[in-house]
Design a protein around this nucleic acid. Structure first.
Length: 476
RNA sequence: GGCCACGUGGCGGAGUGGUGACGUAGCGGACUGCAAAUCCGCGUACCCCGGUUCAAUUCCGGGCGUGGCCUCCA
């Protein structure tokens, strides 16, 4: 379809610019995925949701089969090793690690599926790309960008003229500000590990550069290897959280560019803003650390469980580059709005194209708040009985992943165990009878009784017969 | 200490060098036996101080505040 070009903000240039894929028939995007050592938290959900929206937009504009979206799984990492040893004491290290990464990956998939996230085109695993990482290490050594020291392979940051360009800082500045003790075998303070030796208990593979000991990759090299394998040496978009700008993405760029001799790794670098919880940094010590799964299935946040679509809506109610404060108020408001939308589109047939203004808003560097405001406009028309707008609203909501056929009641996960629908209908009939008899005391008593059960009544006049028709719903 | 973001009405949140997006809360009205729901209407907001400009919330400089990175945390 022909619509206005997509504009994206690029961290490399600190500017928003029209997006033009290298190959107009094949858009390639890489986003850093989770390290599977523990449940994904709500901060992890942000890039997953944000780049899912971008993926959907790119598919719409360039065609579903013309977009490759790679989101990796990091399944080799020292945090994984530590956690596996702690949780599965009876198992051999390899078996324990396999069990942990397998379980955590499955849970991650389940959690983000609830958020309405599409599967990426490819989901490479680090352990499936060790050979490619070894090749990269050897290439970097051969080209004088890396060196071997005490069975480690290290990247020589001084060998790259514009190291620090993405983070916009020079080596001098970084060294001046560094608070880390520099390992004695490093030539330069900012040099980073590409490969390190493993003990017998740690996962290990044959090492590059003729190193005798088995070893394992550093974090950054994983993404360089997986991106190259699935997207090529230079591709279109690379995404992740702002906290990855340095050192992770800076180092990916250094590795890939130096190994391939390319002027760039990806044309556009996109970073989502940080998430806070109720105005504070999310951390286990503050007791405000929430896994996606906690929000979906327990009442630890705001005394209720939240539907995945509500979490998604709340996440998209702020522009992706802004910091977002994750609060109960925000989720409550998101739930109300989504329930209203659901009421308008439930039972309405979708089809057709998503609203062009919404696509326009998304094309403007993923302006989701603006898109939502346009959705409100559609909802207003739908509420006035415009069936075409109701249908368009549904199609557009489905396109963004904000609707999947749920009813308003299903979007509220509060417990209503003791509400018996048959009894509710009987009480409503009694109340209508009392009202007809002008026994308002009795009718109000029934209304109060229902309210105590969490049931709210709505009286409406039937447009055809003029009769009072009472419907009910759970208190929101 | 170095580097980088952000600061809009009660709250959430776009956007813009000059006519106050949008949502939500609140207020008023219609409707209702009274409510709820619905509908209609109502808000002279852009952290502070300078500068540029005919004009700044929007550009520039400084300050204050909050947050991020500099420790394989999205």
């Amino acid at each position: 379809m022909q619509i206005k070009p997509i504009a994206l903000y690029n961290t490399l240039t600190r500017q928003k610019a029209p997006f033009a894929p290298i190959d107009p028939h094949h858009v390639r995007m890489y986003v850093c995925g989770p390290t599977v050592y523990d449940l994904a938290h709500i901060g992890n959900a942000r890039p997953v949701i944000v780049f899912d929206v971008l993926f959907r937009l790119l598919r719409l504009v360039y065609g579903e089969t013309h977009v490759t979206y790679a989101r990796n799984i990091t399944d080799v990492d020292d945090k994984i090793n530590a956690r596996a040893a702690e949780r599965f004491k009876d198992l051999a290290p390899t078996a324990a690690i396999a069990k942990l990464t397998q379980e955590t990956t499955a849970q991650f998939h389940a959690d983000i599926a609830a958020l309405g996230v599409l599967s990426p085109t490819v989901e490479p695993r680090a352990t499936g790309h060790i050979a490619e990482m070894v090749v990269l290490c050897d290439a970097l050594i051969a080209k004088g960008h890396a060196y071997v020291a005490e069975d480690h392979v290290l990247f020589d940051t001084t060998s790259m003229a514009d190291y620090g360009k993405l983070a916009n800082r020079s080596l001098d500045e970084m060294e001046a500000g560094a608070r880390v003790d520099v390992a004695p075998y490093k030539k330069g303070a900012m040099d980073f590990v590409l490969w390190k030796p493993s003990t017998a208990e740690q996962p290990g593979w044959p090492s590059p550069a003729g190193i005798k000991k088995h070893g394992r990759p550093g974090w950054h090299i994983e993404c360089s290897a997986m991106a190259e394998k699935h997207l090529g040496q230079v591709f279109d978009i690379h995404g992740g959280g702002v906290d990855l700008v340095f050192p992770h993405h800076e180092n990916e760029i250094a590795q890939s560019r130096c190994a391939h001799g390319t002027p760039t790794m990806a044309n556009v670098w996109m970073h989502n803003g940080f998430l806070q919880v109720e105005g504070e940094k999310m951390s286990k010590s503050l007791g405000n650390f929430y896994a996606i799964n906690d929000l979906l299935t327990t009442d630890v946040f705001g005394q209720q469980a939240w539907h995945g679509r509500v979490l998604r809506f709340a996440m998209l109610s702020t522009h992706y580059r802004q910091p977002i404060d994750w609060t109960v108020d925000r989720l409550t408001q998101a739930k109300h709005t989504l329930q209203e939308f659901a009421e308008l589109v439930h039972g309405v047939a979708g089809g057709g194209a998503p609203n062009p203004d919404v696509i326009g808003a998304l094309s403007d560097d993923l302006n989701t708040p603006s898109a939502i405001s346009i959705l409100h406009g559609l909802a207003k028309s739908a509420k006035r009985g415009d069936g075409a707008k109701a249908s368009e609203l549904r199609t557009t909501l489905e396109f963004i992943g904000l609707y999947g056929g749920e009813t308003a009641a299903e979007l509220s996960l509060q417990q209503h165990a003791n509400v018996d629908a048959v009894k509710v209908r009987a009480l409503i009939a009694d109340r209508l009878e009392a009202r007809r008899a002008k026994d308002f005391k009795a009718s109000d008593r029934i209304r109060d009784e229902l309210a105590a059960m969490g049931v709210v009544l709505k009286d409406a006049k039937s447009p055809t017969t003029g009769e009072i028709v009472t419907t009910w719903e759970y208190k929101r």
